[in-house]
Write a protein that binds this DNA or RNA. Structure first.
Lengths: 162, 162
DNA sequence: GAAGATTGAATATTCAATCTTA
DNA sequence: TAAGATTGAATATTCAATCTTC
């Protein structure tokens, strides 16, 4: 970035944003728009919110079919306290159970109950259908793979250093 | 892994996710990770949350320097009621004012006060610096432009049809 | 003492109902 | 009657403090 750009930035937007800033805005807006759409589709289908789906997917995708509370909070990027209560709700709904670690009794895992697996199976097609509808004829498979690869690195970089 | 868990997992994801689904997961995770990082940077600098920044930017970027409440809610993808209260907070902080439309007295606009413009000027460099740190050496300018273009279309498609 | 998870108080967001103007 | 915005009740999330185990 040039020193000039910094000076110009004192006003609200005197220069056009850099390519990286524009990419971030595109990511942010696409995320918001698609999220809104998925939410709506789930609501219309009489299904629980997207946050529940994300919890179910994260657990189903985890090795051993269970995941530590701390890891899950990080994966969903929500606070630990927030996760505890979110999981409480899914447990109360009979979808999950907490499993306590044998070797370190401080840690607890979340694990799917059969009802959770069933619900996931109900929610997944809705989500995937909406995603196809949103991406197909807009994003080629090649582009999709490039996005996955590039944003995967971005994610790693964003999590990694301070 | 127990045979039971394998069976359950196989049921919940019978085929590997398509390229579009993977792209969506990458977008979602990159968004979450970068958002978390921007939040942290703003907090560490003693500045307001990212949501406030997004409001300020949306208003500053709008033509005439003001934006309808309804449009702003849609841009930020939050409920209308939620936006009313978010704007209340920024108004109470002396950053914004509401401007009522002359020709249609149902609509109200949000508009920056000088303090809002100043705060935006303080927040923007923090955000841009973090974005540079996160994207540079990971995403080339060419890739950044491709992401902007592709996700811009995704956003349009997600908002557009039902 | 430090790490992992949970709780309670404060804050933010949604949903449905309401108010005002077109 | 419908559109735009706001309010109140219910729900969700965060932050700081606490509890338990290492």
């Amino acid at each position: 970035m040039s020193g000039n750009a910094t000076a110009l930035k004192t006003q609200s937007r005197t220069s056009s944003p850099g390519a990286h800033t524009e990419a971030w805005e595109a990511i942010s807006q696409a995320h918001a728009a698609v999220t809104g759409r998925l939410q709506e589709a789930l609501t219309n289908a009489g299904l629980p919110p997207l946050a529940w789906y994300e919890v179910l997917v994260a657990i189903a995708d985890a090795p051993e079919g269970r995941i530590k509370m701390g890891e899950l909070a990080e994966a969903l990027v929500i606070s630990r306290g927030g996760l505890t209560k979110l999981i409480d709700r899914l447990v109360n709904a009979g979808l999950l159970e907490r499993v306590f670690c044998e070797t370190d009794r401080r840690v607890s895992y979340a694990s799917l109950l059969p009802a959770g697996t069933e619900l996931l199976a109900e929610m997944r097609p809705i989500v995937e259908f909406e995603l196809e509808l949103t991406f197909t004829s807009i994003v080629t498979e090649r582009q999709a793979r490039e996005i996955s690869s590039t944003l995967g690195k971005v994610r790693g970089n964003a999590c990694g250093n301070t």
